[in-house]
Design a binder for these strands. Structure first.
Lengths: 249, 249
DNA sequence: CAGGGTTCTTGACCTGGATCAATGTAAACT
DNA sequence: AGTTTACATTGATCCAGGTCAAGAACCCTG
């Protein structure tokens, strides 16, 4: 930005931009799910200014790579992402799928390097929150800090649930749990709980659940035969959500 | 505590108590690993005052139970803990083991209810950090907030590693990873990296790693036959840490 | 230190889901 | 249109690790 130039018309332009900017978070469809929730409007305006908005990524493009230096936390704005960690032999674990309003990269705060690789599953966009700037606000906006911790805590608790899934559940329970969790998350975002698109491949699902692709394919077939769900390529219709919930274990 | 009584000798007693209190965190053997690290000494004194210290628990006693209302985060002072979550059919997953300097209960910040049950594995003590009081300090001590986030982030990243373990590793790799991780954590705490006690039962280990007790027993036997480690009941001697690390995958 | 419980080890057997293999489908590029 | 390459389904076979069973070693507590 160039030096301010004190002629009246320019001032008004700046004011207008500021105002539109101020609205960006408030008018966002994800506001209800997002970080700024509960901030005072002047705090929100300050936060708004440091957010780098609407960076767009196409399918398979990386948002960041494993061990890259940590600079920002990202919030999914549209589309979907997966994060992966690799063990040896090129084995990879899909550690999570991320949908609009969800945060990516928080596990890098401690080590200051991203601990996973994040890839877009389809054309997607994110809001970037430069972490240093966020910290500068810390003292002035304790609610913001609290929101951040709450987010971290939420991911922690869903990771623990995933441990139960990976460690204790059968293939069928895993599959049912996955579908119910997707349904829940779509509903939270104002979409249908019973009809949605799977943006990830069968092999991503299998990997995430600790199963083989073939097993996922068979399980989906079985659930379809049992009239619990209907698949048509990537699109899913849940026909008996209650029954599916009972299968979760 | 009774009302202050302004005679000189009592004053001196109070001053002395305050001073000792001030030292409690600084003189703690775990200071280097703990939350107050990096705080200014006056901030430290304030933090010191809200910490409820040295609560003692005996073997199998619960620190908190699943779904109990969240009030405090705990730091292990001595001994060891495990946390568990239950699926249906009474199946339980041991989600973590916690040693001195490590934090328990952070996954409850979001939901305001503990998301797991924490039990002492041996006679243990904790420092209790009442979360509301901690929050009150937030604005005044941004470093403290930052430390908290860093802690949360660290647990997040170790949970992701556990996902790789549960989802992708073989029984042998799991076992090796577990032993190496214990070794590392004991070393960080100033203990021997090669000789330590397993405070948890075989069945807790098995459960945590997503294995059957019998498999753990066989694996430990096999590692012992291969001269990598030596077991004598609960005590372990790692004889070839490097080889063990190679087995982690 | 006897005895009743719990935890640990070891062996024999079994199975859920992995792996291998072959074919089907469908999007992406000539 | 046809060709390539990736993804998905289905069947046949296999095996790592689970389950069952039976002792052995280790507690506790009286």
């Amino acid at each position: 930005m160039t030096h301010a130039n004190n002629v009246a018309p320019l001032f008004r332009d700046i004011a207008k931009v500021e105002h539109e900017h101020h609205l960006a978070c408030q008018s966002c469809a994800l506001y209800r799910l997002c970080l700024p929730l509960g901030l005072h409007s002047d705090d929100l305006a300050r936060l708004d200014k440091i957010i780098k908005r609407s960076q767009s990524l196409s399918r398979n493009q990386s948002l960041f790579n494993y061990l890259a230096p940590f600079k920002s936390i990202y919030v999914v704005r549209s589309g979907a992402f997966k994060t992966t960690i690799s063990a040896s032999n090129g084995r990879e674990q899909v550690t999570g799928f991320y949908f609009p309003g969800e945060f990516i990269g928080m596990d890098a705060i401690h080590s200051q390097n991203y601990q996973s690789t994040a890839k877009a599953l389809e054309t997607s966009s994110v809001c970037e929150l430069p972490f240093e700037r966020l910290q500068e606000f810390g003292a002035a906006m304790p609610q913001l800090q609290m929101q951040m911790m709450s987010r971290l805590s939420k991911e922690l608790s869903s990771d623990k649930s995933l441990m139960v899934l990976l460690g204790k559940k059968t293939a069928e329970e895993k599959m049912a749990t996955f579908l119910v969790s997707l349904s829940r998350r779509f509903q939270d975002r104002g979409f249908s709980a019973t009809e949605f698109q799977l943006s990830m491949s069968r092999s991503d699902i299998a990997n995430h659940l600790g199963l083989a692709v073939e097993t996922v394919s068979r399980l989906l077939g079985r659930l379809q035969d049992g009239q619990l769900v209907h698949f048509e390529g990537k699109s899913v219709t849940i026909e008996d959500l209650e029954a599916l919930q009972k299968l979760c274990g």
